[in-house]
Design a protein around this nucleic acid. Structure first.
Lengths: 152, 152
DNA sequence: GCAAATCCGAGTGATGCGGTCGGAATGGAA
DNA sequence: TTCCATTCCGACCGCATCACTCGGATTTGC
């Protein structure tokens, strides 16, 4: 259950792009320094985001990157999938592919439920939500229960 | 967002233990063949589970492993934490430890919300639930929405 | 004392993570 | 047409983690 640096960077980069003026593209160096991300790694990530259709790019001077869609139509799930693949995997397989036998049979449903609850957050929250500082209220409700902040 | 083989094996092993008679301990080889887990790896895992207090053990002939607590008081979260550490990490840190600045500031709350929703499943489902094939109804509700089984 | 089991730590091959680097292609301006 | 800023692309690299294995040492029951 680990969010990689790449996924974290990807989301932050996209959020940063959402905060820019729509007219002109944003340079990699800009985004990198704004979000404190290693430049050449970010270059890498943005290329991946482009080939997944999340961002567009322009070469040459005055070039750079911008969002391919309006920020309020782009979910965090889309961004993360673009760089990490499937949201959740169990031993490298998707939850619906794995099979258990015997007393652990119900386990598959647990993983499915897990993924469903992950999606509830990541599919709903858009890049615009994060950039604008206004998360959906049911997501916010999850963070308000103070036990949510406890370590365990 | 990846569930490792170790975590999967740990849960299955514990579920298998829950399905045994309470009187006598269960041998590693038994559990391994029942759940199709590599024996020496499982040995490893059970040792970890024991040092976390999830299972107890007995050495010598007639020895083996059994649950340290009633199966209906043991959550999947406890088992997973015993072998994997914290349930969710972002770039190796816990969600409440990381700090963002600028336009990505709200991201921390997203990760917190994510974890909260993960916990909703893993803290609630007990080993007894899985072994008995009766998951809590709100967890089951998550799997009933047919979109839960879709790939995306 | 013997045999059956757990205990324990070290080791191992493959894979992925978190980047870096060197150029090639592209586009705008002079 | 010639710079030069920028993206594009693939290769590479060190390190950690993953998924295991192995060889004994220790405990326990008979």
């Amino acid at each position: 259950m680990h969010v990689t640096a790449k996924a974290d960077y990807a989301v932050r980069a996209v959020v940063e792009l959402a905060g820019s003026s729509q007219g002109s593209p944003r340079k990699v160096d800009d985004v990198a320094t704004a979000q404190n991300i290693p430049v050449s790694f970010l270059e890498n990530i943005l290329t991946q985001l482009r080939s997944s259709g999340v961002v567009r790019s322009q070469r040459g001077p005055e070039g750079g990157y911008w969002l391919a869609q309006p920020a309020d139509e782009l979910s965090l799930a889309q961004v993360i999938r673009a760089v990490e693949g499937p949201l959740v995997g169990v031993r490298g397989q998707r939850p619906e592919e794995i099979e258990y036998s015997g007393s652990a049979e119900q386990l598959q449903q647990v993983w499915i439920a897990l993924r469903a609850n992950l999606r509830k957050v990541l599919e709903e929250v858009t890049v615009a939500d994060v950039a604008g500082g206004k998360l959906p209220k049911d997501v916010l409700a999850l963070t308000n229960a103070e036990e949510a902040w406890q370590t365990r």
